[in-house]
């Protein structure tokens, strides 16, 4: 499993994309899947940059793991920001308002549409958003 940790600023989306693409190329990923993964990463990463740290800059860690048995890749974005589940728009920490953390309706629509599995977990102070995509 490979990982990359970057600051949560929009400019780093290229760094992140290149890192992930590099891993994907090693996995014989189709161009189509790679494009879709890139889009999904953009949506999810920008969401974290805009909302996870309440206007401040924190860190985002991305994990890329090939699921060889399933011929798929699992990518997890992890941040230490405000607990928030962009999939259900439910806030695990009830004290925070909805508008503090959201993802664009279109963005999450595209992620949900293109990825094979999208799941969210809040654990040990970490927001973990995981997508699985067939290569």
């Amino acid at each position: 499993m490979m990982k990359l940790r970057v600051k949560s600023t929009i400019e780093n989306v290229d760094l992140l994309t290149e890192f992930v693409n590099e891993q994907l190329e090693g996995m014989d990923c189709s161009t189509r899947a790679m494009t879709q993964i890139d889009i999904a990463l953009d949506e999810l990463f920008s969401n974290i940059c805009n909302y996870a740290y309440g206007g401040k800059i924190g860190h985002v860690t991305v994990y890329v793991e090939e699921l060889e048995d399933e011929g798929a890749v699992r990518i997890t974005l992890e941040d230490e920001g405000i607990p928030f589940d962009p999939l259900s728009h439910e806030d695990p920490d009830i004290s925070l308002g909805l508008k503090d953390r959201t993802i664009g309706g279109l963005g999450i629509f595209m992620v949900k549409r293109t990825m094979d599995d999208v799941s969210y977990e809040y654990k040990d102070g970490l927001n973990m958003l995981t997508v699985v995509k067939a290569l």
Binding site: L87, S88, H89, E90, L98, G105, I108, F109
Partner: peptide
């Protein structure tokens, strides 16, 4: 609606 629970 995308999502579940009270917000949805």
């Amino acid at each position: 609606v995308s999502g579940k629970g009270i917000p949805a």
